[in-house]
Every structure is written in structure tokens, then in C-alpha cells.
Amino acid sequence: MKRIVLCLTAVALLLAVLGPVPAMAGKTVNLTYSIFLPEKHAQAQAAIAWAKEVEKRTNGAVNITIFAGGTLTKGPKVYEGVVSGISDIGNSCFAYTSGRFPVMQAIDLPMGYPNGKVASRVANDFGLKHADQGLKDVKLLYVHAHGPGLLHTQKPVRTLADLKGMKIRSTGFSAEVVSALGGVPVAMGQGDAYEALKTGVVEGTITPIETLKGWKQAEVVNYTTECSAVGYTTAMYVVMNKAKWNSLSPAVQKIMEEVSAEYVDIHGAAWDAADEAGRAFTLEKGNEIIPLSEEENKLWAEKAQPVITKYEESVPNGAVYVQEIRDAIKKAE
């Protein structure tokens, strides 16, 4: 009897030191994860690594099956797919369901994001703070965002006068930016951009520089204009079905939140690495990167301001959100 008591005491002391073990006594929790990006894309790989880290830290209590490349739900359908339970977790862009997330769309405005790390930190902090604004039907795990969207063209654009009347592939707020700067926006996804540039359907594209390698667009453009003052981003969410989230143990929930917080910078670093690769690739192709003067950058920012003003005036508290993001960018730099 004394031996049994000693053994039980030793076990109790060990548990007190180690804390609660996240692995569940019952069945493993099986989750599905819909990712809109192709599996080999750096951001899809980061998302997959997040899932593997959750599995590892829960000691196998959670198993996540990945559906990349929109094989379970396409980009615009990912969010609704999570809400309805088609997938348990989803990764896509707020911009794909334009109008559904007016508060979150503030992140995508041409605020002059310097890089992916800053954009991801700002987007995540803003997203988590305002998750009750349109995201009540899911659990928001984290947000990340790409580096600054820049202008890539077939003929050099050194001033606004050079851009006037040029047909530029763009989407969402970036289309409004192109229009404000004097260009002609042409709505088109990345998948169609290469052929459109090659055949002259468009004369340029506004997009992160990573696409010059990732989508091989450096083969069909000749110049990149570093219009950093109007550098926009695209916020990408990772959300979970609310009922499924609520069914998890507090220990597993805590682990998922901890891993999510860590992966904001991992995604940001992946975006920046991809941008550097895109920059190197376009230079290898003999293309020119055109830096704008401080004066010209200021002029571009002034011309793009109506896009921000329109948002401020059309969304309740829009001006507050814009200022909040501006302050966050300065703090994160």
C-alpha cells in the first residue's frame, strides 16, 4: 500500500511540474485545411508548416489534412466554406469577397507598406483587434500580407506622365490606384497576366515584385517602377469554423493561438524572401528597376489619396481605421 501511495504521489508531482498534457485521451481531432495557393507556393508551404507545428505541439491530438491550390474550395469560396463546415480551417484573401469585410479592407489600401514583415504584423494586429467587425462567425487565427505592390511595365515609367493611358492589370483597390494615377485598370487574375502581357492585351501590371519570378512575369515586362509611396498589400486570413474551434480543449486552443502568433513573422519573412528572389530574377533578365525621386513619390501618393479618402468616407469609422494602420506601419518599421 505504501508503495502505491508513493507512486501516485510521484505521478502527481510530475504532472504538477509538467503542467497539462495537450494530447487528448479520446480520438484524435481530424481537421481539414483549405488553402487557395498552389502547394509549392512559399506561402502555402508556410501554412502547411503551421499545420505540422500544431500537430507536433499537441502530441498528435490534432491531425490536419491539407487541401492546397483551391482543391476543396476556390479562393473566393474559402471563407464561406469554413463557415458552412466544408472545411474546418481556411486560408484566402479578404479582397476575394469584396464588400463583405469593409473594416478589414482598410489593410489593403495604398499605405506605403515597406515590406512583407511590416505588412504582416500590421495586418495581424489590426485583424485580431477588429475581428468582431464581420468575423464573428469564425475564429480568426492570424493574418499575413505581402510586400508592397509595385508597377511593372513594358516601357519605362519614370513619372506620372509616362503612365497616363497605359493599360495595367490590377484588382481591387490596386485598380482604383491605377485609375487615380492616370492609368487604365484591366481586371485580371495573376494566372492570366503572363499571356496578357506577352500579347499586349495589357502594358503592365501592379503586383508584388515576387510575381516576376513566381509567375515568370519578368519574361514579359522590361521595367519595375519602385512607387513605394503607394505600395499596397493584400491581407490573407487564416480562419477556423467556430463550432469546431469551440469543441477543442482549452489546451489545444492555447497551442493553436501560440503557433499562429509565431507564424505571422514566418509568413512575413517568406514574402520578403520571395520579393528578393523576384528582384534578382528580373535583374538577371536584364530588366531595369526604376527608383522614383522623393518628389515624384510624394506626387504619386497625393494622386492616390482619393482612394483612401473614398474609403474613409464610405466606411463607418473609416478615418479611424486608416490612421490606426498608418500609426502601426510607422511603429513596425
Rank of each mutant, 00 (worst) to 15 (best):
A218R: 01
E219C: 02
E219G: 01
V220A: 09
V221S: 05
V221N: 10
V221Q: 02
N222G: 15
Y223L: 04
T224W: 12
T224R: 06
C227R: 13
C227A: 15
C227S: 12
S228K: 15
S228I: 07
S228C: 04
A229Y: 06
V230D: 03
V230Y: 03
G231A: 03
T233D: 03
T233Q: 03
M236I: 13
M236F: 13
M236E: 07
M236Y: 08
Y237T: 05
Y237E: 02
V239M: 00
M240I: 01
M240D: 04
M240K: 06
N241M: 09
N241T: 11
K242H: 11
A243T: 13
A243Q: 15
A243S: 12
A243V: 10
A243Y: 06
A243I: 01
K244E: 06
K244S: 04
K244G: 06
K244H: 04
K244R: 14
W245R: 02
W245I: 01
W245L: 03
N246M: 14
S247F: 06
S247I: 01
S247M: 00
S247E: 06
L248E: 02
L248D: 09
A251F: 05
V252S: 08
K254A: 14
I255Y: 07
I255M: 02
I255G: 05
E257Q: 04
E257H: 03
E257N: 05
E258Y: 05
E258W: 01
E258F: 04
V259P: 05
S260E: 08
A261Q: 11
A261Y: 05
A261M: 07
Y263C: 07
V264N: 06
V264T: 02
D265P: 00
D265A: 11
I266S: 04
H267W: 08
A269E: 02
A269H: 00
A270Q: 05
A270F: 06
W271Q: 14
D272W: 08
A273R: 11
A273E: 02
A273Q: 10
A274H: 08
D275S: 03
D275H: 00
D275W: 08
D275E: 15
D275M: 11
E276D: 15
E276I: 10
A277M: 09
R279A: 05
R279C: 02
R279Q: 02
A280C: 12
A280F: 13
A280P: 01
A280Q: 14
F281N: 01
F281S: 00
T282I: 10
L283C: 01
L283P: 03
E284H: 09
E284N: 15
E284T: 13
E284K: 14
K285A: 10
K285W: 07
G286A: 13
N287H: 14
E288G: 01
I290T: 04
I290L: 10
I290E: 08
I290H: 06
P291M: 11
L292I: 10
L292Y: 05
L292N: 04
S293A: 00
E294V: 12
E294P: 03
E295I: 04
E295H: 07
E295L: 12
E295C: 03
E296I: 10
N297F: 00
N297K: 14
K298G: 09
K298W: 00
K298Y: 10
L299E: 06
L299S: 13
